[in-house]
């Protein structure tokens, strides 16, 4: 009976600690996910008539260049971040780390393909700034927050 009470108490404490507003990974995943899904949807409003893999896309908010493939990538990445954030700390931490690493790579590779035929995402300079910024924030939160140490969890 005592063991059961202790277990329930631990589970309650864990549930409280893992609440969305207390977990940087979950909160960031949900916020970034929602923003990227929104950006993906809005992207289609400026890419009417743009070829799927065109290197010259439409300008979203007058700044960020996108084409239909770029919009779909935003939708998929946004959905992955959003779903992982809603599901829990561990999936949020994993997806934030993977997306962060992928964006860091894209932010660097993007610089070298801007004016080439390989620019199938229609990347421009503003896209690269956003990708690099998103990458380091996602990586930092995935690596540095929601650590479990010796049975005691620290949110940051």
């Amino acid at each position: 009976m005592i063991t059961r009470q202790t277990g329930d108490s631990a589970r309650f404490t864990a549930r409280k600690e893992y609440a969305m507003t207390k977990s940087p990974n979950r909160l960031l995943g949900v916020i970034f996910g929602a923003v990227y899904v929104l950006v993906g949807l809005l992207g289609f409003t400026v890419t009417a008539g743009v070829d799927f893999l065109s290197t010259d896309g439409g300008l979203l908010l007058g700044i960020f260049e996108v084409n239909p493939l770029h919009n779909i990538a935003h939708l998929l990445i946004g959905a992955a971040l959003l779903i992982a954030g809603v599901r829990g700390v561990r999936p949020a931490k994993t997806v934030n780390g993977v997306v962060g690493a992928a964006y860091l790579l894209l932010g660097i590779i993007g610089l070298f393909i801007i004016d080439s035929a390989a620019n199938i995402l229609a990347l421009n300079g503003a896209d690269n700034v956003l990708h690099f910024g998103s990458a380091i924030v996602l990586l930092a939160v995935a690596l540095g927050a929601d650590k479990v140490t010796a049975g005691r969890r620290s949110t940051v």
Partner: peptide
């Protein structure tokens, strides 16, 4: 605080990226 932590990282992240 979680919110303060994320805002601080977002601001710094975008500043460094720019």
């Amino acid at each position: 605080h979680t919110g303060r932590y994320l805002v601080a990282l977002l601001v710094a992240g975008m500043a460094v990226a720019s």
